[in-house]
């Protein structure tokens, strides 16, 4: 692509110059002749009509030479800049391993090239830093949390605690879990926000992924004796598998959280007008109308839902992942109460 673009641009430039020269010569021929006559004071010779054509030829040739010179000079700048632009496009797409060289002897061009190389190097370092940072933070925070949770569990397992102490231990455990969930969500959200995740598209069975997500959350829903009503068509989907799983985990977890003991969650997956439509509906309290438009905001939690659990990041994460992969999500209250989330991709 790069090789085809370069000559095309130059030829266009060249032809344009000649065309302008030609036009100027033809349209203004009489005025031009007058000017030349004025300058050289050679009225007699040039009034002969044959000579007029010679003059036009000379002027035309002038433009031709001018055009060629311009092209030659611009070549010096044009070629390196077109190359730079092509390389910049690659950087914009996330390739930070590029380093470019130029044979150009122009100082400005050489400087631009070395600055570009420096910039890409810096970007590369930042990118690595961020990816490493996310996994380091996650490891460094979660290790002490595991120790806290573990030792608290040991206390809980021992039979020597009073009822009051047992209650405190429960609170420590609950809050370590909250903290670690929060850390996980913040890190994932920052990755999605910064598009640091390299997008990996592949084909996979979407209905099976959702089913696996339900299986993963089994301890939570079986504890609340929740029934699942699942109606999913076999669906082969093309998308980022490891990112998509977070959508289902969050939406299903959310539905379990707001379902009453012994509640029912309806899940359906269908193809509609060439799009894939996923609906999940619980029979919890639903979402107050004035709050529905905020629930995808970071850290937003409906009144009273603080008491349940969670950190207000789950739905925001879902929305960001969907935006990144070209999907959308909406929410409404189902007939007979309960919240109904619809995802269209």
């Amino acid at each position: 692509m790069k090789k085809r673009r370069r000559p095309t641009h130059l030829w266009r430039y060249f032809i344009l110059m000649i065309a302008v020269g030609f036009l100027v010569t033809v349209v203004f021929q009489s005025s031009l002749i007058m000017i030349v006559e004025e300058i050289f004071k050679v009225k007699e010779i040039l009034s002969v009509s044959q000579n007029r054509w010679i003059l036009l030829g000379v002027i035309f040739a002038g433009f031709l030479i001018g055009g060629t010179t311009t092209v030659l000079i611009s070549r010096k700048y044009f070629v390196p800049i077109t190359k730079l632009s092509a390389e910049m496009q690659k950087v914009a797409q996330g390739n930070f391993d590029i380093q470019i060289e130029t044979k150009s002897k122009v100082k400005a061009i050489k400087e631009i090239y070395s600055d570009f190389n420096l910039m890409v190097k810096e970007l590369n370092a930042t990118e690595t830093l961020q990816t490493d940072f996310v996994s380091n933070v996650s490891h460094e925070i979660k290790t002490p949390i595991t120790a806290i949770e573990g030792y608290a569990t040991l206390l809980q397992n021992s039979n020597e605690t009073t009822a009051e102490q047992a209650e405190y231990i429960d609170k420590i455990l609950l809050n370590t879990r909250r903290l670690s969930e929060l850390v996980g969500n913040i890190l994932l959200l920052s990755k999605v926000d910064n598009k640091a995740i390299q997008r990996n598209e592949s084909e996979f069975r979407l209905d099976e992924q959702i089913r696996q997500s339900i299986v993963l959350l089994e301890p939570k829903w079986s504890k609340k004796e929740i029934e699942f009503d699942v109606d999913m068509e076999d669906t082969v989907f093309s998308g980022d598998e490891k990112l998509m799983i977070h959508i289902w985990n969050n939406l299903i977890d959310n539905a379990i959280k707001f379902s009453p003991q012994g509640g029912e969650i309806k899940v359906s997956l269908k193809k509609e007008n060439g799009k894939t439509k996923f609906i999940i509906c619980d029979n919890g309290p639903g979402i107050p109308e004035n709050e529905a438009k905020h629930i995808f905001n970071k850290f937003y939690q409906c009144d009273g839902s603080h008491k349940i659990e969670g950190n207000g990041l789950g739905l925001s994460l879902v929305k960001n992942i969907l935006t990144l992969s070209g999907g959308e999500i909406s929410v409404r209250n189902a007939e007979g109460g309960g919240a109904e989330f619809t995802v269209i991709m």
Binding site: H139, K142, T143, I145, T146, I148, E149, G150, T153, L154, N157, T176, R177, S180
Partner: peptide, 12 residues
């Protein structure tokens, strides 16, 4: 690996 657990790990 045969199985994995994600930190924070519940010791029970």
């Amino acid at each position: 690996m045969d199985d994995y657990m994600v930190k924070p790990v519940n010791v029970n």
